[in-house]
């Protein structure tokens, strides 16, 4: 049991977070590489454990990657599913290591968000380049503006968004756990 929740409650919370990630993805579909999904998946891992966080990430991409206005590619979907689980795993790994979270911005989380996104972008860009037959160097260099937008936005979202999001959700989960 995580945070006093039984398995059904944990599954329900994971499903809600997956739905939230999906909803925000479709809402922000016109804003390339700026999404709240990574923050939500990280929060899922932090609140429910690494496995559940990875599951939320994988499920989100399985839906979003399949029903995607920009098209479908199985290798890229595999890469994004794998990359997204990193956020959940990292969230789980950092549970209890960040100290008490308030509502104030936390610069450490900006670093976490940036580095996780850097790894995610690197992995997905490499797979996309190999899939499309584009030279790796061209894909990596050409992808820099998009990667920077992704990394910078995630650094901001994690720094300013994660403490209030995690604190609020913790309170809600504690209420239901009683």
């Amino acid at each position: 049991m995580e945070r006093g929740l039984n398995n059904t409650q944990r599954t329900a919370v994971a499903a809600l977070l997956t739905a939230s990630a999906l909803t925000t993805n479709y809402l922000l579909v016109g804003v390339v590489n700026v999404k709240l999904m990574d923050l939500i998946v990280f929060a899922a891992g932090f609140l429910l454990g690494a496995g559940a966080g990875a599951g939320v990430g994988a499920l989100t991409w399985l839906v979003y990657g399949t029903l995607n206005p920009y098209g479908f590619s199985l290798p890229v979907l595999g890469a994004t599913v794998l990359g997204e689980t990193l956020y959940g795993l990292a969230g789980g790994a950092l549970r209890g290591r960040l100290g008490p979270l308030g509502w104030r911005p936390d610069a450490r989380l900006a670093v976490v968000g940036f580095l996780l996104t850097f790894v995610y972008d690197l992995e997905t860009n490499v797979v996309s380049a190999l899939t499309a037959g584009v030279p790796l160097a061209v894909a990596l260099v050409g992808g820099v503006p998009f990667a920077v937008a992704h990394e910078a936005s995630n650094a901001v979202f994690f720094c300013f968004g994660f403490p209030p999001l995690a604190s609020s959700l913790e309170k809600v989960l504690e209420t239901y756990a009683r």
Partner: peptide, 23 residues
């Protein structure tokens, strides 16, 4: 550790930007 990680972030961002703008 966090300072080192933050410096790593700026190095990665700066390096990527340098390579991009040089190209």
């Amino acid at each position: 550790t966090w300072v080192a990680a933050a410096l790593l972030c700026t190095t990665l961002a700066g390096g990527a930007a340098s390579i991009y703008f040089y190209t």
